[in-house]
């Protein structure tokens, strides 16, 4: 073994996003014939989310992962990839997120130049849905409601587009804030809602699917360039393998975990139960057009063009 590389992230090791880092470490060991060891530090042990992105940029750690919005703090255009209702389906998202897609190649060049990190792979992380303590079927049902939002502009635009007032709540306080009514609801992928036991404090799950997220794995550019050709190939192979495996794991779980939330007593409201997804889509798109069309319009076109 000739090389040890550090991978720091903010997820719990038991979650899929956390587990995929361990899968990546195993895959790199396998494909490199145990030449490269990847040491994983989960649960924000090495720093907060934004700090980890900066640490990868500066080379303190070799790898980290983040949402596209989080990578946006290093290179602004990345935030566009978290735009609500942007992808037709998971397959479309995975094609856009492929490091060889024209969109990703262009973004990656910009990211390397701006922040000295490159995207090595990205996997599907789930569709974000709304939870609340009452049934919500149209944007009008959310009028005057306060919903916890991730403090990034595009996430706030999403919550506003859904019809609610976005409120920042520290992640550690979300379950309590929901239980006591500081906010009426929140939005997250199914696996997060299940893992954090939000079913204990929220009665309704609305399958708004207002945002499809990818978890983007980045690598420090100097660490990448220091690799031999064989080592680079091993990382590429591992990236391909884990990208598929993690995406599949999340997709398989989405159905199962929705069912589990139902069993835990949540009322699930989808189109069949009268959820007007088109109304949400139209209302969210209106806010997005107003705020982001100037900045990301060209990028949106390129993403649409990917078949």
């Amino acid at each position: 073994q000739s090389l040890t590389l550090r991978y720091g992230h903010n997820n719990e090791p038991a979650s899929v996003a956390g587990a995929q880092a361990d899968w990546f470490a195993e895959a790199v060991a396998k494909h490199s014939g145990n030449d490269i060891a990847v040491q994983v530090f989960p649960s924000s042990q090495l720093g907060k989310l934004q700090e980890l992105a900066e640490a990868a940029s500066l080379g303190t750690i070799a790898f980290s992962h983040n949402t596209a919005g989080g990578i946006g703090s290093l290179y602004e255009p990345f935030a566009a990839l978290d735009t609500p209702y942007l992808y037709r389906d998971v397959d479309h998202l995975m094609k856009v997120m492929d490091v060889n897609s024209p969109v990703m190649q262009e973004l990656n060049e910009g990211l390397i130049a701006a922040a000295n990190v490159r995207v090595i792979y990205a996997h599907y992380f789930g569709r974000r849905h709304l939870t609340c303590n009452k049934a919500i079927k149209t944007p009008a049902d959310l009028a005057g409601e306060k919903i916890r939002a991730v403090p990034f502009p595009i996430y706030q635009a999403a919550v506003q587009g859904l019809g609610a007032a976005p409120v920042p709540v520290d992640w550690s306080e979300v379950p309590t804030a929901l239980a006591t009514g500081v906010v009426a609801g929140q939005e997250n992928p199914i696996n997060v809602i299940l893992n954090v036991k939000l079913y204990e404090v929220q009665s309704h799950l609305m399958l708004t699917g207002h945002m499809s997220n990818a978890e983007v794995v980045i690598m420090n550019e100097d660490a990448w360039q220091a690799l031999s050709d064989e080592q680079k190939e091993a990382v590429r192979q591992a990236a391909l393998e884990v990208r598929e495996r993690a995406t599949k794991a999340i997709q398989d779980n989405e159905e199962k975990e929705t069912e589990e939330l139902r069993k835990k007593g949540m009322t699930v409201i989808g189109p069949a139960e009268g959820l007007d997804v088109d109304a949400f889509r139209a209302s969210v798109n209106k806010v997005i057009q107003e705020r982001f069309a100037d900045k990301y319009g060209a990028l949106y076109e390129k993403i649409k063009a990917i078949a």
Binding site: G47, E51, A55
Partner: peptide, 19 residues
């Protein structure tokens, strides 16, 4: 032989917390 900038990054970010 760890990067010295960890010192300042961690020291400042640790305080950046609403609670």
């Amino acid at each position: 032989d760890l990067p010295i900038h960890v010192l300042v990054q961690r020291a400042v970010n640790a305080l950046d917390s609403t609670p």
